[in-house]
Measured scan of single mutants.
Amino acid sequence: MPSETPQAEVGPTGCPHRSGPHSAKGSLEKGSPEDKEAKEPLWIRPDAPSRCTWQLGRPASESPHHHTAPAKSPKILPDILKKIGDTPMVRINKIGKKFGLKCELLAKCEFFNAGGSVKDRISLRMIEDAERDGTLKPGDTIIEPTSGNTGIGLALAAAVRGYRCIIVMPEKMSSEKVDVLRALGAEIVRTPTNARFDSPESHVGVAWRLKNEIPNSHILDQYRNASNPLAHYDTTADEILQQCDGKLDMLVASVGTGGTITGIARKLKEKCPGCRIIGVDPEGSILAEPEELNQTEQTTYEVEGIGYDFIPTVLDRTVVDKWFKSNDEEAFTFARMLIAQEGLLCGGSAGSTVAVAVKAAQELQEGQRCVVILPDSVRNYMTKFLSDRWMLQKGFLKEEDLTEKKPWWWHLRVQELGLSAPLTVLPTITCGHTIEILREKGFDQAPVVDEAGVILGMVTLGNMLSSLLAGKVQPSDQVGKVIYKQFKQIRLTDTLGRLSHILEMDHFALVV
């Protein structure tokens, strides 16, 4: 994948999101292997301009796509893939009243899908469409860049269908997702969380590099694949309309690839034109409109599966009536509230959605109805927002919020430890010299600072030695090549209790 991002070429006709291997024109390309080798690009942008032909009021008969309808489940399912879809609609009884809503608040519980998330729908649909058009064949390999849930859905379907599955996901995604993927037989590649989507090191860039190296491999490409919004247009939206008897006044959905909100909203605009569509985008993402909503100094966020630093091709923002931004604290607070007060075992993005819903639905009156999409299960986040310690460490809970008995030293300040200034190293000294210094002084790690004293990161003896043994660096290389740029900081005025929580999850903390 090139470091400079080429513009994806656009073909003359058809839909841009065809499933299957992508040609340089962004659509299915038939021909000899030699032709494909000559024409197939190194990668295709996940934010390529959409060429979708959908228009409100256009006859369904003019759609270029294969459409399906929700099917009634048999008493005995032939395999677990038949437990994807037909998820329950559940009334939220307490939270709406707590925040003064007059309307009825309903939750579409997508964590009841077989793999635990709304992404099971698009995973199965992308595979079925690729099999139907002859792209996927027995023994082929599926590769997908994902925040985890699409990966789980694909790995689940691949396990049943017999495909090899490789999932490329950023490091910030939970260990629970990784464990589930491994249990399903998927191979996992992790990428830096802070890598831009168009960087060769991003999950998108690495996935395309693997595709170019592995024979008979395919990126189904949830960011561009029409099967993504079509899955929701054909099934999720129809289920909502049936469950609500066609009567709903507002739908609120958090947005990642945009397939969920695009597919549902398009069908609702056709069948229930008075329904307002509300999009939820986390602070630090750029999906919301108008652009002024996205202006923030924050560039990272903890909530998973929603928000991006690019506009995915499948996201149709014209069908969203209003956007709201959400933050991590309210997302996790509301997710825990949904679990504790409503018994809905949902993930953090569901918290984002409901946090926005109780604001947006203030305009609705008694007798009206708001539906929220709860995308995934708490299963993926047992060591994250479900953990009091994690919430404390991230600053989303305060010590006084917890009532468990603490040891005698818990409320003492870090400054009472009488710490001395640490050994520091410059980023320009060599790895070999740094190892000598650390061994001589008896230290395992040291902060790396520039000549102005600005902290650049941390270097550890173990990481340097393993990097040297693996051949990633040489003793003569500058130590700046092996620094940890993500590390926890703590102030002298913070409590030892807070430091204790940090050290339970990290090997060190830097006192500043």
Rank of each mutant, 00 (worst) to 15 (best):
P2S: 15
T5K: 10
Q7N: 09
A8P: 03
E9K: 14
G11K: 08
C15K: 12
P16M: 09
P16N: 06
P16C: 03
H17N: 05
G20M: 09
P21L: 13
S23P: 11
A24S: 14
K25L: 12
L28I: 14
K30A: 10
E40V: 07
L42Y: 10
W43M: 11
W43S: 06
I44T: 12
I44C: 08
P46S: 02
T53Q: 10
T53G: 09
Q55D: 11
Q55T: 10
R58M: 10
P59A: 06
S61K: 06
A71S: 14
K75T: 10
I76T: 03
M89D: 01
V90E: 02
K94E: 11
K94P: 03
K94A: 09
G96T: 04
K97S: 15
K102H: 09
A107V: 13
K108W: 00
K108E: 06
C109D: 03
E110W: 01
D120T: 07
I122N: 08
M126V: 05
A130W: 00
E131Q: 14
E131I: 07
P138S: 15
I142Q: 01
I143A: 02
S147R: 02
G148W: 03
I152H: 00
I152P: 01
A158M: 02
A158L: 02
A158Q: 02
A159S: 04
A159M: 02
R161C: 09
M169S: 01
M173S: 10
V178E: 05
D179T: 08
A183F: 02
E187S: 09
E187V: 07
I188F: 05
N194T: 11
A195M: 07
P200F: 06
V206E: 05
K211T: 10
N212M: 12
I214E: 04
R224V: 05
N225V: 00
N225E: 04
P229Q: 01
D234T: 05
T235M: 07
T235Q: 12
T236Q: 02
A237T: 12
D238G: 10
G246Q: 08
K247C: 13
D249C: 04
L251Y: 06
G256H: 00
T257Q: 01
G258R: 00
T262H: 05
G263E: 02
K269I: 03
E270M: 06
C272I: 06
C272K: 05
G274D: 10
C275F: 09
C275L: 07
C275E: 00
